[in-house]
Amino acid sequence: MSYFLTQVLNGLSFGLVLSLIAAGFAIVFTSTGVLNFAHGSVVLAGAYLVAVTQPTIGFWPAVLVGILGAALIGVLINALLVRNLADPNPGTAAILMLGVDILLLTELTRRIGNRVLPLGAPWGADVVRFGGISLPTGRVLAAVLAVVVFAGLWFMFSRTRVGIGMRAAAADGPTASLMGIRLSRTGATGWALAGVLAALAGIFLTSFPSPGVVPSVALSAFLAIPAWVLGGFDSVPGAVLGGLVIGLVTALTVGYERELHFLGAGFGEVVPYLVMIIVLLVRPQGLLGSKEAVRV
């Protein structure tokens, strides 16, 4: 029983980290209509900034640098590339983002080189134990932080002018624009928010039980894509739910691989996509997506 609970908690805590990334995908999509395939490199860039600045300025100020840096990268991608697209169609933007991803990732790979950059997180390799279950402290913190961040996002989107403006812009851009909402500002806010979420996720993806910042972290971010699609392209709560579902299903499939061996080796690697396909067959708009969402 404690084994089952360990795997459930492993899955849910990792799922919340995936949710942070998936929510970033969803926010960029709703605010500017872009499928942001450069998001994985932004995750890596945030973690990289923390790792390179923490030896001189300490961990917590470095976290701030990482968050602001990732937000700035998001804002710059939006201001320099997305807003200047002659043909504002999701396909063109998606391919442009793949290009940005390759550029950013190549540069970060060159800078990181053969090293594994330690993040210097004060929780190190500590573990929280309770009732026969042990969970890395970093993961517990990630889960708590993610819940706080999602509560903050909910408050922002339902109670603040900025958030409501963003929702209006997402629902009907031209009308929102006529009502006095500046689409350039809601777009920039969306990209900045996604950058912040990416940096937070990057910090938890690169601290224990992962060794530190290595280029393959950008690949891990792609694990959040099924979570995003599963939740519905344009829904932040959907992305959170999607992350939890994917995290849980993956952990249980890997945890009970022996019992599930008839499904073939490595089933845990394909199960996120399998769940995504099954959900989309039953609910084409995703778990919480709106029906009009553009799908590619």
Binding site: L205, E257, E269
Partner: peptide
């Protein structure tokens, strides 16, 4: 290579 957290595998 995308699996950088081996918690589930190690527990199993």
């Amino acid at each position: 290579p995308a699996t950088t957290d081996l918690s589930a595998q190690a527990s199993a």
